[in-house]
């Protein structure tokens, strides 16, 4: 079971309090009607699915209820950081220096 630091509650909490929300930074278009079919398909169905660091959404469902983003390694499941929804993608290099890896 993962320990996930909720950026709103500002403390690590057990995974059972959270709900996974898929890849982060897939923004909904401000004008979806203007999307081409290909762009729509890309938005709806295509994800990066990396082997490595993954920016992903979580909700602290059984805690504060807030949505936030985490940077998790899909092989080791290591989470090197979490940040609030709407904040820009953090610099991975910076995180890794801080985490010492």
């Amino acid at each position: 079971m993962l320990l996930i630091p909720c950026p709103y509650c500002e403390e690590p909490r057990p995974e059972i309090e959270f709900r996974y929300g898929g890849e982060a930074h897939i923004a909904r278009s401000a004008d979806p009607t203007g999307l081409s079919d290909a762009a729509l398909a890309d938005y709806l169905y295509f994800r990066s699915n990396p082997k490595g660091w993954h920016y992903e959404r979580w909700q602290h469902q059984s805690g504060c209820g807030r949505f936030f983003n985490a940077v998790r390694h899909t092989v080791t499941d290591r989470i090197i950081g979490t940040y609030k929804a709407g904040e820009p993608k953090p610099d991975l290099a910076l995180y890794r220096v801080r985490a010492g890896s």
Binding site: G21, R28, R57, Q59, G65, R66, F67, A85, G86
Partner: peptide
């Protein structure tokens, strides 16, 4: 609904 309200 929370998801859309908080993130979109």
């Amino acid at each position: 609904m929370e998801d859309y309200l908080q993130t979109e």
